[in-house]
């Protein structure tokens, strides 16, 4: 689905990897290693300084940028909701492409386990966890094939983070999505991912199955990171 060939951007150096359809990839590593930069490259919020990225077999720059961004949804660490109601937010993406239908609202709130009467609620009245759910619903409204998650629970308390995790688990099962998620929470990584990419100093240091990586790290760098 995605292929990186010798990609350089900012701190990222010579990044090479492939992501297959329905992979659940967890990107983890120390802060400033380039994890968010990597997600931004996939959504084309940024372009590589050097190297090539392929999406569905075609160079990423040959895809229409807006269409690609619709297919490859991104949920940022902060919800960054737009002023207005929950409905205004979740119909934002589909409305850009003239694809919004009113019946979708309730369904989307259902996906993120929010009651349907929240549709008319002003986003200023929502709690942190609710805001992140709305942000997730807003991205899902575009029916993406790939879901990029940039530490979606890092700003939330433990209980709320667990709730969001449950929502994500259900979504992955129901929608057969391909997922790339940045997280510092290793338990979360174990629960949600089937593959891990350990990034440090802008390089992919280890790439493998999550349980294997966590239980038997191959590199000293990963072992040290896990100890911390």
């Amino acid at each position: 689905m995605f292929r990186f060939e010798h990609v350089y951007q900012g701190v990222l150096q010579d990044i090479n990897f492939t992501i297959e359809k329905q992979d659940k990839v967890i990107l983890f590593g120390p802060s400033g290693a380039g994890k968010s930069t990597l997600l931004f490259l996939l959504n084309r919020l940024n372009d590589p300084e050097k190297g090539d990225i392929y999406f569905n077999g075609k160079p990423i720059e040959e895809h229409s940028i807006t269409a690609l961004r619709k297919q490859v949804g991104l949920v940022l660490q902060a919800p960054n909701l737009f002023p207005g109601t929950v409905l205004d937010n979740i119909k934002y993406g589909p409305s850009l492409f003239g694809e919004w239908e009113d019946h979708q609202g309730k369904k989307l709130l259902d996906y993120v386990q929010l009651p349907s009467d929240y549709l008319e609620r002003d986003v200023d009245q929502l709690s942190g966890g609710e805001r992140q759910r709305v942000s997730l619903a807003r991205t899902l409204a575009n029916s993406p094939e790939v879901l990029l998650l940039d530490e979606p629970t890092s700003a939330l308390d433990y209980r709320t983070a667990e709730e969001i995790e449950e929502v994500l688990e259900c979504l992955m099962e129901e929608h057969q999505l391909t997922m790339l998620m940045v997280t510092h929470n290793l338990n979360q990584a174990r629960r949600l991912g089937n593959r891990g990419l350990f990034i440090s100093d802008g390089k992919i240091v280890e790439d493998g199955k999550i349980p294997d990586m966590f239980d038997q790290p191959k590199t000293e760098e990963l072992a040290k990171f896990l100890e911390q």
Binding site: L45, R69, L74, L76, N80, Y92
Partner: peptide, 13 residues
């Protein structure tokens, strides 16, 4: 900044 990135990431011009 965050809202702009969110908006672009959803496919906005």
């Amino acid at each position: 900044n965050g809202r702009l990135l969110a908006s672009l990431s959803l496919g906005a011009e």
